[in-house]
Amino acid sequence: MTVAQTENLNIIAQDDMPSPGDIKAQLPLTDTAAATVLAGRRAVQAILDREDPRLFVVVGPCSIHDPVAGLDYARRLKALADEVSDTLLLIMRVYFEKPRTSTGWKGYINDPYMDDSFRIDEGMARARKFLLDVNELGIPAATEALDPIAPQYYGDLIAWTAIGARTAESQTHREMASGLSTPVGFKNTTDGSLDAAVNGIVSAANPHSFLGINGQGRSAILRTRGNRYGHVVLRGGGGRPNYDTVSVNLAEKALEKAGLARNIVIDCSHANSWKNPEYQPLVLRDMAHQIREGNSSIVGAMIESFIEPGNQKIPADLSQLKYGCSVTDACVGWDTTVDMLRQTHETLREVLPKRTTLA
């Protein structure tokens, strides 16, 4: 009697993947990069604890697809970060994984050559190399945690993590967040609801045990102590923005009801700007106005920004890609980014030092 095959019926290949330890051995953490990571994490924690009156701003491309243009942006951002550092802590948005509603390019790790070759092994190594280079410049990095295995490969190079709108209610991502070494921002869901984000913060603050991998790539039971630096990110949804005063006040009340600190980050992009980058400066300006008028719960912002404004489709001939222009969501250009952050710095430089009370 022949036993029927009951597994891997839709798997056509299984390619070997280097372990996290293998890739870290090829691209080890340097003292300079480690200092940048730790300083970035501590600064965000101090902002969330109200020990540092500044705002943190996660700013950068919607996604990384060209490491040359990405590092060009990072160098510019480092100079701007030094200029506004008394008011704003700038963290570069470095997103390698793109969640998809249906289909589309899944990001630099999944398909680094943008040709459907899906060399995830090379993409992971290239992503780690890019993060090392960014941190070596002295600018901390932020990312979205999408794949639960990926943090083992480059989590030591991240200062702030987002849990996205599509995964905020996922048990897997809440468990992962509970073990991350960074502060974690939970976004409201795409329908605009805050419940999943608030519940995610509560869940991630508690210990969890779950299946994962260790540094050698072996299956392991991961046991976490919980992450007390969860906070909410308002990104709009359900056909309307939620950065306005009323929406922020409702978010404050939801956090209070759950027994959580009133720590709120405003995402200037996505549904808050109707995915139109021209509206991102208006969102940031409104946020700064709320702070000037006495708001004490807004601790940070997110901006989708690249060298060139707008976005582009991925062409069949990759040599036709426009340098420094997003291949995913549309971004504000560099000149607009500078104007936005300098204006916010100037607007809030005398206001933020007075915000000393814990929200």
Rank of each mutant, 00 (worst) to 15 (best):
V3M: 09
E7Y: 12
I11K: 13
I12N: 14
K24E: 10
Q26I: 11
D31I: 08
T32L: 15
A33V: 05
A33K: 05
A35N: 10
G40C: 08
R41D: 12
V44E: 06
I47M: 10
P53F: 09
L55C: 11
V57A: 13
V59C: 15
S63K: 07
D66E: 09
P67D: 09
P67E: 13
L71Y: 08
K78W: 06
L80F: 08
A81P: 08
S85P: 01
S85H: 10
D86W: 01
D86R: 01
L90D: 09
Y95L: 02
P99H: 05
R100L: 06
S102H: 02
G104S: 03
W105T: 08
P112Q: 09
P112S: 10
Y113E: 15
D116K: 13
R119D: 13
I120E: 12
M124I: 12
R126K: 12
A142I: 03
T143D: 11
D147A: 10
I149T: 10
P151H: 09
Q152C: 06
Y153C: 03
G155V: 03
L157G: 02
A168V: 12
E175M: 04
M176E: 03
S181T: 07
F186G: 04
T190M: 06
G192N: 06
V198C: 07
G200N: 07
A205L: 01
F210A: 08
G212W: 03
I213F: 11
I213C: 05
R218C: 06
S219V: 14
L222K: 11
R223L: 05
N227C: 10
R228D: 15
D244E: 13
L250W: 04
K253N: 14
A254V: 10
L255V: 06
K257H: 12
A258I: 12
S269F: 01
S269W: 00
S269Q: 00
S273N: 02
Y279E: 07
L282F: 02
N295M: 01
A301H: 03
M302F: 03
E304A: 06
P309L: 04
K313W: 01
P315R: 00
P315H: 02
S319F: 00
K322T: 14
Y323T: 07
G324N: 08
V327Q: 04
V327I: 15
T328I: 09
T336S: 15
V338H: 11
L341K: 14
R342N: 14
T347R: 15
P353F: 10
